[in-house]
């Protein structure tokens, strides 16, 4: 038996996320429905060093604050379906906008690799990126890629392998907001811990609820309800 690891790909639109997905999975792709939802996401499999990987291509989004259906899909997958690892694909030529999403995802889940894609374009324009510094500051591996030329993919696969087998530990950076916000998070977090178990970051839920994320509330409610029903059915 080989283990199967689920790896989600997230990122802004136009970052070459699908190119990376294609480069990783070749033509072994299909559209799968997950968690009984009508939303279908492209999935592909890949075998590397006797480990089986299932890559899931999440919709390209600018943020993950559930402003749109696509954002809800991406958020729900990362938070509730709990992939073993999330690759955040960012565009080397517009890192500032792309890191905004990456920082949000780092607040939600632990195992993350930042893939700086389109390095070939960046080099053409004389852009150089210090990925070691970024990795240190973000607390997760940062890999430079050019998915269309398959450059950087061996290193990425190696990093994925080392994360899922526990050889690298991710310590994603948590943004410190201003004193007022932090105080509110601190006052709400204990209550979050009473209601939702620790598989979801209580800090993140507290922040989202403070922000008035009703879509998240709804999702939490339905997921808790299904849980109750399964418990009832079993007893």
């Amino acid at each position: 038996m080989t283990d199967t690891f689920r790896i989600a790909l997230a990122g802004n639109p136009n970052t070459g996320k699908s190119t990376l997905f294609n480069a990783l999975t070749g033509l072994k792709q299909h559209t799968g429905n997950w968690a009984g939802k009508t939303v279908s996401l492209a999935e592909g499999t890949f075998k590397h060093r006797s480990k089986q990987y299932r890559f899931i291509d999440l919709p390209g989004t600018y943020s993950i604050f559930s402003n749109s259906a696509d954002e809800e899909v991406a958020r729900n997958y990362i938070v509730f379906e709990k992939p073993d690892l999330t690759l955040v694909v960012v565009d080397a030529t517009s890192l500032e906008r792309n890191l905004n999403l990456a920082l949000q995802i780092l607040e939600m889940t632990k195992n993350v690799v930042i893939c700086i894609n389109l390095m070939d374009e960046a080099e053409k324009r004389g852009i150089t990126i210090n990925e070691r510094l970024l990795a240190r500051r973000l607390g997760v591996p940062v890999i430079k890629l050019s998915a269309r030329n398959r450059a950087g993919i061996p290193l990425l696969l190696d990093t994925i392998d080392r994360i899922v087998s526990g050889k690298i530990a991710c310590e994603p950076v948590q943004i410190k907001y201003d004193g007022e916000i932090e105080a509110r998070i601190a006052s709400l977090e204990p209550f979050v811990k009473q209601v939702v178990d620790d598989r979801i970051s209580s800090r993140w839920i507290a922040l989202r609820l403070l922000d008035g994320d009703e879509s998240l509330l709804k999702e939490l409610n339905t997921r808790l309800k299904t849980k109750e029903e399964t418990v009832c059915n079993q007893s």
Binding site: S63, N67, R97, N100
Partner: peptide
């Protein structure tokens, strides 16, 4: 509303 949030997301 949503438009403000979208604009924020875009920078």
């Amino acid at each position: 509303g949503v438009m403000r949030r979208r604009l924020l997301d875009l920078g």
